[in-house]
Computed example of a mutant assay.
Amino acid sequence: MSGVELYIEDEAAMLQLGQALAEQTAGHGILFLQGDLGAGKTTLSRGIIRGLGHTGPVKSPTFTLVEPYEINKHRVWHFDLYRLTDPEELEYLGIRDYFADDDLCLIEWPQQGKGYLPQADIEISIKAHNDGRFVQLLPFSTRGKSWCAALSALT
């Protein structure tokens, strides 16, 4: 199974994709979210987090680097590494601890943590196209492949 490519028309459709990803991941795994500023990474993260049952606000962790969510029986860690100046800073954050229990880790700007992050189950690239977005999902694990297979029905 190779990746899945989707055209997302608007914010509502991005939130729906997030809901579908929440269902597939069942609150576990590592998702890398890539794209330019304003591409929709945080919107997709919001859809995933709300899809797991969170009803409060979902903000971008641009200044805090990580925003934790306790949702029912799940823990979700939403990272935004945009402002990270050196990947080694992740060691001071205790980055390995976040991945120890197979919680769901959503990582925006993963290239900023290269060499200190584990392999993603799936990499999601978001690119603006006209008024919408092209979203590409590439699997890098067995479960990532099963998620992509299930999400390919959305095309």
Rank of each mutant, 00 (worst) to 15 (best):
G132R: 05
P118D: 05
R83A: 10
I126Y: 12
V58Q: 08
A120P: 13
P61V: 04
R83T: 06
L33E: 07
V135R: 12
T43F: 03
R50D: 03
N130C: 10
G47N: 02
H74P: 00
G94N: 12
T64E: 05
I107H: 02
D97H: 07
Y69C: 00
Q112S: 13
I30C: 11
F140D: 11
H28T: 14
G51H: 10
G40V: 03
L106I: 04
L106Y: 06
L44V: 02
V58N: 01
R75T: 15
I126Q: 08
P118F: 05
R133I: 00
L90Y: 02
D101L: 12
V66Y: 03
K41V: 04
R133A: 02
P110E: 06
H78V: 08
P68F: 04
S125L: 01
E91I: 13
A26S: 14
L93I: 08
L117S: 13
A128H: 15
L84D: 03
D102R: 13
H28R: 15
D86A: 11
H74S: 11
I48K: 03
G29V: 10
T43I: 15
Q24G: 08
L65S: 00
D121P: 04
P57M: 10
Q119G: 07
G132V: 14
E91D: 15
G94L: 03
S45D: 09
G51F: 00
Y116W: 14
F79P: 11
D97E: 15
E123Y: 08
D36A: 12
H54F: 13
Q111G: 14
I71D: 12
L93K: 05
L90K: 07
G27E: 08
H78S: 02
D121L: 03
D103K: 04
A120R: 09
W77Y: 15
T25H: 03
W77G: 04
Q34H: 14
E88H: 13
T85S: 13
F63Y: 15
A22N: 05
I126D: 08
A20M: 13
Y82H: 06
A120Y: 07
T85M: 12
D121E: 11
D131K: 12
W77I: 09
I30E: 09
R50S: 05
T85Y: 01
Q111R: 15
F134Q: 07
G132C: 11
N72M: 03
P68W: 01
F63L: 00
D102S: 12
Y116T: 00
I71C: 05
Q119H: 10
L93E: 07
S60K: 07
A39S: 15
F140M: 01
L37S: 09
R75E: 03
Q24M: 11
K127P: 01
I30P: 12
T42Y: 06
A100W: 00
R83I: 04
N72V: 05
V58L: 09
G94R: 09
L137H: 11
Y92Q: 10
H74Q: 15
A20N: 15
E89Q: 14
I71H: 04
L104K: 02
R50Y: 08
P61I: 03
E67T: 01
L137D: 02
L84N: 04
